[in-house]
Simulated scan of single mutants.
Amino acid sequence: MTLAVVLVSPKTPGNIGSAARAMLNMGAKDLRLVAPRCNHLDSGAVAMAVHAADLLRGATIYPTLREALADRDLSVGTSARIRSDLPQPQHPAQIRPFVRAATAPALVFGPEESGLTNADLEQCQMTVRIPTGDYASLNLAQAVLLVCYEFLQGQDEPLDRTRKTATREEMEAMYGHLHDTMHLIGYTDAVRARHTLRLWRALLDRALMNSAESRLFRGLLRQVQWKVEDAAKRGTTEPRPGQEVEAQSQD
């Protein structure tokens, strides 16, 4: 298991350097930066990284979160806020078994001043909440250190699951396909589409599909699309001759 730490739009070099140091302390070495608002190789970042300077220099820059997660098979967002139509934040211990069983998990942190947006969390199968006291104000490096510790400390324990799930790119492509199909059949409209798709995401992400299962689901969507488009061309919703389902005999 190789845990990637993804920082979305980090603001200050020192925070990135400190996060790299926290990662190295816990054994995580894959740092990914999404649209950073500063130079991650600034002297301040390198100074705060201390012995993790090489990890910092090896960080990969991505323009979007989707691209940063494309090769991951599990993505875990960080947030303490509850959204009604997104996965509810869970204690790290509840999520740890899923992270450890994944081949390529990712841990996603939002901008220092605002955290992850709803659009960011849509791309995460699970959300982790760091339990704190009444004063809940952790800086980015502290959050990285604590969650990496929770997810990596038990790595020598026997695994309960060995299932390899689909990559996030495969799942995002499936959700795009589902979105188009829902519009095609009138299942939802432009106003309700995002909320409806979030509910479907939550349901299907819980299934932890593998690649073959995501392709199977898309095969069903392709058949639905073909059927609707074929019927529209012929001006009917009746089955094409030769495709009728055999009626059950009645007494």
Results as ranks from 00 to 15, higher is better:
Ala19Met: 07
Leu69Thr: 08
Leu41Ser: 14
Phe217Ala: 09
Val245Met: 04
Val108Lys: 06
Leu159Asn: 09
Ile82Ser: 04
Leu116Gln: 00
Asn25Gln: 14
Leu7Ala: 08
Phe98Arg: 11
Trp200Gln: 13
Val6Ser: 07
Ala4Arg: 01
Thr2Ile: 02
Ala119His: 08
Arg206Leu: 00
Ala52Gly: 08
Asp156Thr: 03
His183Asp: 07
Arg198Trp: 08
Thr236Tyr: 05
Thr64Asn: 12
Asp251Tyr: 06
Glu170Ser: 03
Arg37His: 09
Val34Pro: 12
Asp160Arg: 14
Met48Thr: 04
Val144Ala: 07
Glu157Pro: 10
Ala202Ile: 02
Cys148His: 00
Ala22Leu: 01
Ser79Pro: 01
Ser9Val: 14
Gly242Asp: 02
Ala93Asp: 13
Gln142Thr: 10
Pro10Cys: 11
Leu216Ser: 12
Ala193Ile: 12
His179Glu: 15
Ala35Trp: 11
Ser79Cys: 12
Gly14Ile: 03
Leu3His: 14
Leu121Trp: 10
Thr196Glu: 10
Ser214Ile: 11
Ala28Tyr: 05
Pro241Trp: 05
Ala45Asp: 09
Glu67Pro: 04
Glu172His: 13
Glu67His: 13
Ala59Ile: 00
Met209His: 00
Val76Ile: 14
Lys11Cys: 01
Arg32His: 05
Gln243Met: 09
Arg72Asn: 08
Leu199Ile: 02
Ala143Pro: 11
Arg215Thr: 06
Glu238Thr: 05
Phe151Tyr: 06
Thr64Ser: 11
Leu159Lys: 01
Phe98Met: 13
Pro241Ala: 14
Leu65Thr: 04
Thr2Asp: 15
Pro87Lys: 08
Ala28Pro: 05
Thr2Asn: 15
Pro97Glu: 11
Leu146Lys: 07
Val144Gln: 00
Asp160Trp: 08
Ala68Gly: 03
Pro36Trp: 02
Glu122Phe: 15
